[in-house]
């Protein structure tokens, strides 16, 4: 695990709770106390009403595949050994979209609209990535 060479997130004070939750294998997103909007990616102000009154909430981890691509050539040199791999956008049950990899699924079985569930991958001692697999 020490030789993980793919791009890693570098959390800041605003996003740290998201990555801390991921490390506990929990998916958390934000919600606006002023207007109720569910929010991802982590922000300091609501994407709809701009209120600086956001709280972290647990997300169900459930969603549907909104779109995907199967990378047949690496999109970054460090992904070369993973080809073919699935880059996907998931529409979370709570509404927001999130970028991820679909895992545990043969590329020819991937279908837009398929139900998926969060699947956590500890890529090194510090970082856990939030991936998704078929539900």
């Amino acid at each position: 695990m020490g030789d993980y060479t793919k791009p890693l997130p570098h959390p800041n004070d605003v996003s740290q709770p998201f990555w801390d939750a991921a490390k506990r294998h929990e998916l958390q997103i934000q919600r606006c106390n002023a207007c109720g909007t569910s929010i991802f990616y982590p922000r300091e102000a609501c994407s709809e009403c701009l209120a600086a009154d956001l709280i972290w909430i647990p997300a169900s981890g459930k969603g549907r595949l909104y779109s995907y691509t199967i990378a047949q050539a690496p999109t970054h040199p460090a992904f070369a050994d993973d080809v073919p791999y699935v880059i996907a956008i998931i529409e979370l049950e709570e509404g927001p979209h999130i970028t991820t990899n679909l895992v545990g699924c043969q590329p020819d079985q991937v279908r837009i609209g398929m139900p998926v569930v969060a699947s956590f991958e500890d890529v090194n001692a510090e970082t856990t990535l939030v991936k998704f697999r078929p539900a």
Binding site: L8, P9, Y41, T75, H76, I87, T99, N101
Partner: peptide, 21 residues
């Protein structure tokens, strides 16, 4: 860099592939 790149959504190719799909 924080929420797309770790999953390989980097530069333009995969973004437009997501649109095409």
């Amino acid at each position: 860099a924080e929420f797309d790149a770790p999953y390989g959504l980097i530069a333009a190719n995969p973004g437009y592939a997501l649109i095409a799909q």
